[in-house]
């Protein structure tokens, strides 16, 4: 983040203007490049992404109807699931058809979830995974990278890791203050509300200074009163140089903060582009109408700026 030559978020967003609005379009400065990722569950093809690039330094939203394979796609690229199209020792797809994806210039196929996280791509979960019987502070400290005290022999000798621990605590306290959880730092994480757990999970992910953070439905189940501050956090992350990729159902949020939107349906990427244009894309409307006949996504009211500020009113 301290890199002086690094583009500002504004520049990164500006670059997107030149990108073609077609599925799989190449980005001027792609941080994540995905090829041939397929995942079958029995006979169902849950994910079938030929090619996808994610621009560095912007907020990209991944949307799509239920069952479009968004979360599965997340699981695949973060190493929590293996693609059916992975390279195998025997048989399997040919080299050019095999799944491969690279993050920040590093190939990630067949990488364990922990190594993916270590390389700087940190994720959160749709159903929060706050470690409920640890305190909020312990949760935060778990997020820190390269801790000397986590090696078995050093663990016995506190002087070896005490200084680092102190620095991590200071960092955690800063983050907790930012996420308005400071007062709760000694509480068990299980005692937090659903929205606070989402915040904690995000804050915990930030403890490792990720290059890219992947949020799986950060708004689901969050108290409307908290949504605004969550949105603010996500935007400020981008402004500080972190790339954000998030899955979301809440169109208002997508519309409000994302710089680029990728639409998935039935496992495929069907459209991508800036929020306002992509939502009027015929393929997107078809995708949603195919899934929910009763949802009128074509309703212009939904696409108007005024409606975007409505969630607070509506949800109350």
């Amino acid at each position: 983040m301290s890199n002086a030559t690094k583009k500002t978020a504004t520049e990164a967003r500006a670059e997107l203007k030149t990108v073609k609005q077609t599925p799989g379009a190449s980005k001027p400065d792609a941080i994540l490049v995905v090829d041939n990722v397929v995942r079958d569950f029995g006979g169902n093809r849950a994910v079938d992404v030929d090619h996808l690039e994610v621009q560095r330094g912007v907020i990209t939203a991944l949307i799509g109807p239920n069952g479009a394979g968004k979360t599965t796609f997340f699981n695949l690229i973060t190493g929590f699931d293996q693609p059916s199209s992975a390279k195998k020792m025997f048989g399997g797809p040919s080299a050019d058809k095999a799944a491969k994806w690279s993050f920040n210039g590093k190939l990630l196929g067949n990488t364990a979830a922990a190594s993916v996280a270590k390389s700087g791509m940190v994720r959160t979960f749709q159903l929060t995974k706050a470690l409920s019987r640890l305190t909020v502070m312990q949760n935060m400290l778990l997020g820190a990278k390269d801790q000397r005290g986590e090696s078995f022999l050093a663990a016995f000798v506190k002087p070896l890791w005490a200084a680092q621990e102190k620095a991590n605590i200071a960092k955690a306290e800063d983050l907790l203050k930012r996420f308005k959880l400071y007062e709760k730092k000694e509480d068990l994480a299980g005692s937090l509300s659903g929205g606070q757990k989402k915040l904690l999970e995000m804050a915990r992910a930030l403890m490792s200074d990720p290059v890219m953070i992947m949020l799986d439905e950060p708004m689901a189940g969050v108290n409307p009163a908290l949504t605004q501050s969550l949105l603010g956090h996500i935007q400020s992350l981008r402004d500080e140089g972190t790339t954000v990729l998030f899955v979301e159902h809440d169109m208002h949020m997508v519309r409000h903060i994302s710089d680029w939107v990728v639409v998935m349906a039935e496992g495929r990427v069907v459209a991508e582009g800036p929020a306002d244009t992509v939502m009027s894309d015929q393929a997107v409307i078809d995708a949603y109408l195919g899934a929910h006949h009763d949802t009128d996504l074509g309703d212009d009211a939904l696409l108007e700026e005024g409606a975007m500020d409505a969630p607070k009113k509506e949800k109350k």
Binding site: F80, A112, A114, A117, V122, R123, F125
Partner: peptide
């Protein structure tokens, strides 16, 4: 899984 997602 949570611990794994934190790079451990």
């Amino acid at each position: 899984d949570a611990v794994r997602s934190l790079g451990k």
